[in-house]
Amino acid sequence: MSGTSQSALGEFGVQSALAPEGAGATAINGLTIGMTIAFGVIFVLLVLFAWAVLAGRLAPRRWWIWAGGIALPLVSVLALVVVSTGILQKITREEPDALVIEVTGKQFWWDVLYDPEGWALRDANEIVIPKGRPVTFRLKSDNVIHSFWVPKLTGKMDMIPGRVNTLPVLATETGRFRGQCAEFCGLSHPKMAFEVVVLEPAEFDAWMQRNSGEARDAARSELLRGRDVFVEAGCPACHTIRGVADGGTLGPDLTRVGGRGSLGAGMWRMNQGTLAGWIADPSAMKPGAEMPSYNHLPGPDLRALSAYLASLK
């Protein structure tokens, strides 16, 4: 039950449905607590009743069967249906002017496309949204079934190949909230997480502005060397860094990779060391990751490349 995960990330966005920070999760949490209390009370009453009968303090009556066997379940189940349907309606209602973010489940990472019909800003493994402004996630998959779940924001929703599911979210608090793939999808399914970063609306707009252009320039000679290694080593076959190498889509977009909170889809803290370790041996950090090992790079090249990626913020 410990909420702060002792993963390689140390202190990292918390993932708990019992401490909601979004409209959907708040409603679901309220429903859970209400149901637990209501049925707890019914259970206690039943136990007391049974005890009274067994101890001979109450003589059994025929109408009890009607009351306790039919009327009571009918009323309570009906009440449950009404309340939970109402909440389901509420949390899945889509706002027409919501910001659309398309998220595609991959093995084992997340492709993120902000505002597909407008900005079409591509990123990966971290989702930035504004506080208090409705957002609609458009959830897809092009391989197996995944499930998109940020317990602090709202309930989970499957990502099914060939279908588009939508999930509205309204964040009520700023912060970093951890999400997790909630449908077994292969070897590294447990290592397929991400973070949702909720910013104040003005900060969010600035963030979109800042990140919609090309990647940050390499300023030092080591970083320039790193950029060359990126191209020479063949990384653009799978990865895009806008302004440096476009077109790679088999792996996560790396245009602002150093600015993400985590590496490897929510698994490791982002820094030059973990980046270098990842490039040299991705499958040791994430079994089944669909990226080859680059342990043939000379040490200085590995350092330059990882320093360059870390500088892309």
Partner: peptide
Amino acid sequence: IVQYGCGACHDIPGIRAAQGTV
């Protein structure tokens, strides 16, 4: 060691998830 992610490259005693082989 956890914070800096040395475990990405090293196997380190007493540190969970530090099983790197680089």
